[in-house]
Write a protein that binds this DNA or RNA. Sequence first.
DNA 1: GTGACCTTAACGACGCGTAATTGTGG
DNA 2: GCCACAATTACGCGTCGTTAAGGTCA
Lengths: 124, 124
Amino acid sequence: MVADRRRAVYVISVAAELAGVHPQTLRIYERKGLIEPARTGGGSRRYSERDIDRLARIQALTADGVNLEGVKRIMDLEDENEDLRQELARARDEAREAVERTHRHYRRELVPVDRSPVPYRRRR
Amino acid sequence: MVADRRRAVYVISVAAELAGVHPQTLRIYERKGLIEPARTGGGSRRYSERDIDRLARIQALTADGVNLEGVKRIMDLEDENEDLRQELARARDEAREAVERTHRHYRRELVPVDRSPVPYRRRR
DNA sequence: GTGACCTTAACGACGCGTAATTGTGG
DNA sequence: GCCACAATTACGCGTCGTTAAGGTCA
């Protein structure tokens, strides 16, 4: 629906409404380094869809009693955590791929000696 | 120096001294689920070296302005994070090992066809 | 019996969200 | 000129650490 989630389209009043908090609260979040909305030439804040997602995450954490310093660190750790999971998945894919590659390597280059021989064929 | 870091040897007053906080603070930490010291038969708390380490971590975080709910989640995430890093290192080791294994497999089972032939030998 | 431990309650300081105020830009 | 934004300040509420009071175990 939204063309680019990074596109900053919401003014602070709308962003606050979407996040369910007071606009002033969003200014506090920014001062504390939890979020960095874009700015218009005139200096007004503009929030992207991604910013709204982040605000929702902040709300969820603060609703559970985490203060803002904690929220900042938790979101950093969660991001780091997600990166690690992806890297792990990638490492496992690559491991499987490397074994496959090794198999193919030998299957191209070699033939079994203790099985019924197959005629040699040039690589196509 | 300490035989087993999990061995609970410090009473609350000493643990508080080591952590640099009031004993009552440690009781609060326990009630909030941040730490779980062992108990003697009489009901007194006994803190292990690992507990002391954890207390130091709590102090570092609260000194930076993180509240207790945040501390709890951050330590959980840090643990999870550490697990992921180890798993990633292990996955990479295993990947290398799997390729090595595949190489050995073919070197035992097969011989090159387009190079000077070598006599077949039974596996020992 | 005297400490050190236990629990619960009260107090002060601080963080956070909201609201009010004043100024500025479209 | 009006409305929404920006920034600062003030207030109320909840959290956290400490202290105090009273009870229990060694």
